[in-house]
Computed example of a mutant assay.
Amino acid sequence: MGQPLKIGIIGVGAISGQYLSAFERLDAVRLTAVADLDAERAQAVAAAQGVRALTVDELLSDVDVDAVLNLTIPAAHADIALKAIANGKDVYGEKPLAATTAEAASILEAARAAGVRVGCAPDTVLGTGIQTARKAIDDGLIGTPVAATATMMTPGHERWHPNPDFYYQPGGGPLLDMGPYYVSALVTLLGPVASVIGAASRTRDTRVIGSGPRAGETVPVAIDTHVTGVLQHESGALSTMVMSFDSVATRAANIEIHGHTGSLVVPDPNHFDGDVLLHPLDGGWQTLPVSAGYRDAARGYGLADMAATPAGRAFRASGELAYHVLETMTALLDSAAQGTAIPVAGSCPRPEPVPLQDAPQIGTPS
């Protein structure tokens, strides 16, 4: 405690820029090195940040790296995480925690044995949007939560993404791509999930790339592109999810939470902020003032929250939460394939709320 966590980034593609921008205002973390399979890209980022460019193996064993920020592709998440853990380093990764629940479980088991910490995105749930909604629920503004809806409807990523192939192969699809934001938010708001029941479909077996140098090229679709289902939370609340690459548009709120004395409209869980709307039983819609969460948060606040949390205490964007989210989504897809309800075998604690503040601060954990 009292010193920033020294961070080494593996994978400095496009998403790394958002983390690097946030690091500039986060005292709880300090970048010391970067690595990438593209050595020139790593050197360019290192020069811009005033840090060292290393090979992946060099960074994993470097004594000036306390924690590895794993921004590799999902298929490499488990390999990099396990190697970092074997070198005694904390790990924080982009979602998902791993490509499969088996790989994710192996990461958590290795971390427990080594006595290191594992964190994982999304950390959007730590911003003022989701946290203000959570405080409204915890303060009893909607009474007992009964139900929620979570809706993500798009015509498909091939319309804008120049290389959308992954989204239409196993491991992709609307649920595994965007579901981590929605399920993480639902668990933060309503607690862990006990069981699921789902259904899924697809409209066509090919997609046409709409932009970039491959525009007009056809890509195969090997997965269902419309997934819907119900999550039964341990609390008894029921969340209905619709995640689709087969729609055109929707006017539905990203997330709504309904209780016996009120309803909430929750902002987009892919963002850190946004208005929270409350409709009490006897009244009309009103915008709630911001009352909880990290102000002006961005990618990397979950890592800083981990860094600022004393050893032995639970931090919020944890590997346990990420594993529960992955297990919930996998169970939902299995339920859709099997046509039956499926229990979610594991659980996780509901993350601690975030009091309204600017950023995680070393020595003053919230």
Rank of each mutant, 00 (worst) to 15 (best):
V325M: 01
L82N: 13
G179L: 04
G171V: 12
I342M: 03
A39D: 11
E256M: 13
V116H: 02
I130G: 06
L126Q: 05
E58F: 00
S263D: 14
R117Q: 13
A86C: 04
K89D: 09
T124R: 02
T144I: 10
N70M: 10
E234S: 12
F315L: 10
A67W: 02
R202M: 08
V65H: 03
A22E: 14
L175P: 01
Q232Y: 02
V34C: 03
Y168F: 03
V56I: 14
T154N: 06
L356D: 12
V29T: 08
V56D: 03
L332W: 00
I9Y: 00
D27L: 03
T250M: 00
E103L: 07
A148L: 06
A331F: 01
S235E: 07
R350E: 12
C348G: 08
A337V: 09
D296E: 15
S61E: 11
V187F: 00
L303V: 11
G319A: 08
V29D: 06
G274E: 11
D165M: 12
Y294K: 06
A253W: 05
Q3H: 14
T132F: 00
Q361P: 02
E352Q: 12
C348W: 00
A237G: 11
A345P: 00
I137G: 09
P360F: 03
G229E: 10
V221A: 05
P96C: 09
P162K: 10
T250S: 14
A39F: 04
P349E: 08
D38M: 04
G293F: 02
L278Q: 08
V68I: 15
G284V: 09
P122Y: 01
K89V: 05
G262C: 08
L126N: 05
A33K: 00
Y167E: 14
Q169E: 14
L186I: 14
D224Q: 14
L141G: 03
K135D: 08
P343F: 08
I255K: 02
E103F: 01
P213Q: 15
V183K: 02
T124A: 06
H279I: 15
A110P: 01
E158P: 01
A322F: 03
H233C: 01
S347E: 07
T55G: 14
A121M: 13
P74D: 15
I107N: 03
A311F: 01
I9C: 03
P353Q: 12
G179A: 05
A22F: 04
I80D: 02
D282V: 11
D66V: 13
T101L: 02
G140V: 11
T72G: 10
A133C: 10
L190P: 02
E217C: 04
L141A: 13
S21T: 15
A252M: 14
A47C: 04
S61T: 15
A75G: 10
E352M: 05
G115H: 08
Y294I: 15
C348A: 10
C120M: 10
L97T: 13
I85A: 07
A194S: 15
D139M: 04
H161G: 08
G2I: 11
G8D: 07
N163G: 09
V230P: 00
A314M: 06
P4V: 12
L71H: 08
V354D: 04
A304V: 09
R313G: 10
G302R: 08
D358G: 14
D66M: 07
V193C: 09
A86V: 09
S291M: 07
